[in-house]
Design a binder for these strands. Structure first.
Lengths: 246, 246
DNA sequence: TAGTTCTATGTTGTGCACAACATCCCGCGA
DNA sequence: TCGCGGGATGTTGTGCACAACATAGAACTA
């Protein structure tokens, strides 16, 4: 048997590994608003940053475009998608249903390791409640999302929930950041989020995934209600925003 | 304002139009089993057929891979995905729920034109009941799916339902075609499908989309039950099948 | 001065040659 | 006869040069 030389250095990744790495990186940046909605991405810049040519970059961009995060226009550029009020409502409408389904379909067996992961996040929430850093909030929110999502073994459900999540959080962040009283609002959201984590952790501890699903559903629905109400009272900040970049 | 010259000849399509055309064509072929699960697609062959180089073909393949219909392996080829029993069950489990949601979320207003489209398909079913051609059955089934899907305005829901549909129908066709008594089975399916069309058309005529949703849900669930039962009694034909091609 | 055309510039899309990778098959030796 | 090693072959992945396209701004005209 030919000695399948195991890759010793992590830097020496195959084509697939490189593709995934770039893809994950860009998706994270889009979700964390490092790339704002409406911003133009230059393929050549990305190629230079990741030390490859435009070709593999384009591969990643095509995939991100298929997921609705980017939109390439010939002769213009690759633009981070924005989203309309109507469509944001639709996405939330659907996320609410899917969240409940996660608790219903193909439940995973609950073992100590799983419960521990929930408790860990809950504890980390307690520790960082004072900081109220938007970026850190987004990160832990995302981490909790993935953990919650892992409660179902239904692969298509997991994938689609993930896609909708990445579609909405960045828009949520963007919308919230344009409202007056952003700091207070964010702190409030964090406290509510903390309660959600506590509630769902308890449901998981009790092995009641259906209850976890209902809790999650309610929290997502209320989260959207809050942001919409705040935006309405601020005078239509949820409307399509003009691009601020040149 | 510069006179935006509308394209007069359909042959003179832009890059985007060509991309969509190739994408739709390949997706249809995969769904209709022109490309069987496990089959290898050669980029160069496709490039030659569509009169372009490999580059735009690869663009399409990346998107189809992102949707789970293809899988590219460096140095091996681009392979039409197969699907495991477990995952097929998961996909159906989810399709059932989404079908019901189509009747619940963001319902479109029902006008005469919409009702007419349902009646048209119903009538065409009546006319072609004798033929029992698998390919024609798949086509009209697909057409009805798209029509039913258009009952909701929720874009993400439509997109995801579509993706799951394309994932399952081809596997359904493949599985059914390997069973004994395939002809009789198909004819039976067609008769049942005809009933479904009649039922849902009536629900739409009455403006009761929730009822349409429940009908659709029930029919999808029963369809999967039938195929699974038939496969079980035939001795595990739903198991992962060995590739028959060289 | 207002409107229009044209050119310069920048971006994504395409074609092609080559590198990286996996597999098959032939030949060799025990 | 069986195992195995290495080259031949075929496929996807990458890099690069150029084409197609869109836009902004200058230059020109009425």
């Amino acid at each position: 048997m030919p000695d399948r030389t195991e890759r010793m250095v992590p830097a020496d990744e195959g084509a697939r590994g490189r593709f995934d790495r770039i893809y994950q990186t860009l998706r994270m940046r889009i979700c964390l608003l490092d790339y704002a909605p409406g911003e133009r991405l230059r393929e050549e810049d990305l190629a230079e940053e990741f030390g490859v040519s435009r070709t593999p970059i384009r591969r990643v961009l095509v995939k991100l475009e298929a997921e609705g995060l980017l939109r390439s226009v010939h002769g213009v550029g690759t633009i981070v998608t924005d989203i309309e009020v109507e469509e944001l409502a639709q996405v939330y409408e659907l996320r609410v249903e899917l969240a409940e389904l996660v608790g219903k379909l193909s439940s995973v067996p609950i073992d100590d390791a799983l419960v521990k992961r929930f408790r860990d996040i809950r504890n980390r929430c307690d520790q960082m409640v004072r900081k109220a850093d938007p970026r850190e909030f987004a990160r832990i929110n995302m981490e909790f999302f993935h953990l919650y999502n892992s409660l179902t073994n239904n692969v298509p459900l997991r994938e689609f929930s993930e896609r909708l999540y990445y579609q909405t959080t960045r828009i949520w962040l963007k919308t919230a950041s344009r409202l007056r009283g952003y700091e207070a609002l964010l702190l409030n959201e964090f406290i509510i989020f903390q309660r959600e984590v506590v509630d769902i952790t308890e449901a998981v501890e009790n092995g009641d995934l259906a209850a976890a699903g209902h809790l999650r559903r309610a929290h997502i629905a209320m989260s959207f209600s809050r942001i919409r109400r705040a935006a309405d009272s601020a005078g239509g900040a949820l409307s399509p925003t003009p691009h601020s970049d040149g």
